[in-house]
Design a protein around this nucleic acid. Structure first.
Lengths: 198, 198
DNA sequence: AAGCTAACTGAACAAGCGTTCATTTGCCAA
DNA sequence: TTGGCAAATGAACGCTTGTTCAGTTAGCTT
């Protein structure tokens, strides 16, 4: 066989995805044309269609990849015993995973409304899986009397929002390292759910 | 004088703003054309330009109006004595003001990147003012030993993110009233900043 | 009733959009 | 060295975009 798919494709494919991710995060999906993505990579528009059937699929692929990768990494965490330790682990994982991936997070949250209904549902399902992991920790903590809250599900969503909000203000060259931010949030969140000390 | 500005203008102006806000919140600024806004109101495109010089100004106006109104309402709150009461008041105000204004909140947060640099700065300044009000409460609570946290500014941003996230999942026809949500969040947030009991 | 003018129409503008495809390029296997 | 095919080009498609503007409509003021 001569010239299998992959000689340039291995390089160009990821380059397109990287450019698309960066540009869409910056300007929004509807504001970034296929031509601008191609220009950023150094191609003509037509070439993009060797890598994606259409713009919608490209957007969906970026979002799905992010969510799948996130869940895969979450699954690799070592199992811990107590809910308090598990909550710390989750919070720290969320922060250290998300902060170096600002573009992915931005796109995955802001471009949901530009997905077709079926694509939207698939991303939502992945997101629910992630939220479910946190809610399970809260449930365990409730059972062991480590945690107390008025409404478990809302507490889950509250914590997720709190954590995801970090990507809106965190700057790598700011005064805090990712680890310091993680420590601050572990403290805030543990206190917000901790049962009153006996 | 005959036919002063205002005979139809009083009605059409707000109708355009309402339609623009709703459509932009739903689809994003770049995805909503001036023609779609006009169609929604029942006009031809050209008529819109009697009310806004261009699309950018329309978007900015929607965002600025929201922020200015928000700050005005915040300013009307009765002054309370203790930081704990002030924090409760702020949280409850944020929730009751924002939840019935989902479109405004959505647009004000998601369309920041579609603003020109100078318009962006003006909105950011208004937002900082709002965050400053919360930070002042936290500062007072720190001084009175009611509150304890690792980093005051980050705690401020964290609480704002936590509160603003509510608009992403709250549904008017859901199982909780706005007041119930407010109570849950007052509890969560108070516990996350409260000093250990003596 | 008449006339003024705010409000709106409808057509036009150049530019840009997503997508398609016949054609060219250039690397690799033979 | 040559043939084959993946990869990229470049032009074209019909359509939509934001914005402008000369002209039409209609309601208030006199």
């Amino acid at each position: 066989m001569a010239r299998r798919r992959g000689s340039h494709s291995d390089i160009t494919g990821p380059k397109i995805r990287e450019a698309a991710l960066r540009l869409i995060a910056q300007h929004g999906c509807a504001a970034v044309s296929m031509r601008k993505i191609a220009e950023d990579v150094g191609l003509q528009v037509g070439a993009l269609y060797n890598y994606t059937p259409d713009k919608q699929s490209l957007l969906f692929d970026l979002m799905e990849t992010h969510m799948v990768d996130l869940l895969a990494e979450l699954g690799k965490l070592p199992a811990l015993d107590g809910p308090i330790e598990q909550l710390d682990q989750f919070v720290r994982f969320h922060i250290t995973y998300h902060l170096p991936r600002r573009d992915e997070v931005f796109v995955s949250y802001m471009e949901l409304r530009n997905l077709s209904p079926e694509n939207f549902e698939r991303i939502q399902a992945l997101r629910s899986q992630y939220e479910g992991a946190l809610e399970a920790i809260l449930e365990a903590g409730e059972a062991s009397d480590d945690f107390t809250f008025t409404d478990r599900h809302i507490t889950t969503l509250s914590i997720i929002a709190q954590l995801t909000g970090i990507t809106n203000w965190y700057r790598e060259d700011g005064r805090l390292t990712i680890d310091e931010v993680a420590t601050i949030y572990c403290d805030l969140i543990q206190r917000s759910v901790a049962s009153a000390q006996a």
